[in-house]
């Protein structure tokens, strides 16, 4: 089980290295452990996240790709769908069974035909378009809804801070 999981992860690593999508860099922290990755995602243009680079760690379960990885940002990301501890809450990271609220389509959720690349692209578009239905960070969601200018300012300040300016 674990060996087929690491084989698959290695294949995805190779694919992402030779043909990386724009604004995404991802790979295992060390090849000794294929189950812990670190990814860098560029803030999408035309959003307050523009210009920022956001590192995140991806933890894969031993039965990957049957179960999805978990993803956590390693810098402060002020976003309705990111928990204050950095954990990303997005439908593609949820297994099809785990949906008590029934607002997610089964097709949006995790399945073995998804991939790390698709997760990272989904997270990138999530940064641009928050999903207001299930806020992971209630404060950020409220600010996003009611005081958009303040929200964008917090995001921009975080971007500057994360780049050491």
């Amino acid at each position: 089980m674990a060996s087929s999981a690491s084989k698959r992860l290695f294949k995805e690593y190779k694919g992402l290295s030779s043909d990386a999508p724009e604004g995404i860099t991802a790979g295992p922290v060390t090849e000794d452990d294929m189950f812990l990755w670190e990814a860098l995602i560029q803030g999408p243009e035309g959003t307050p996240f523009e210009g920022g680079v956001f590192p995140a760690e991806l933890k894969f379960p031993k039965d990957y790709p049957l179960a999805p990885p978990s993803m956590r940002f390693l810098v402060d990301v002020w976003h309705p769908n990111v928990y204050p501890n950095g954990q990303v809450c997005i439908s593609i990271l949820h297994p099809p069974g785990d949906d008590p609220n029934h607002y997610e389509q089964a097709s949006e959720r995790w399945s073995p035909i998804q991939s790390v690349e698709k997760i990272l692209i989904s997270v990138m578009s999530m940064l641009a378009e928050p999903n207001d239905e299930s806020p992971a960070n209630v404060e950020a969601a409220k600010m996003w809804r009611e005081k958009r200018a303040d929200y964008e300012k917090v995001v921009r300040d975080n971007v500057r801070k994360s780049l050491g300016l």
Binding site: V75, P84, N85, G86, K161, G164
Partner: peptide, 25 residues
């Protein structure tokens, strides 16, 4: 519990420190 835990979390270091890039900057 997820929302409760991060209260104690220290602020994240910036990327330059994190990746040791100050010399390359």
């Amino acid at each position: 519990s997820r929302t409760a835990t991060p209260v104690a979390k220290p602020s994240q270091p910036d990327l330059i420190t994190r990746y040791n890039l100050s010399s390359k900057l």
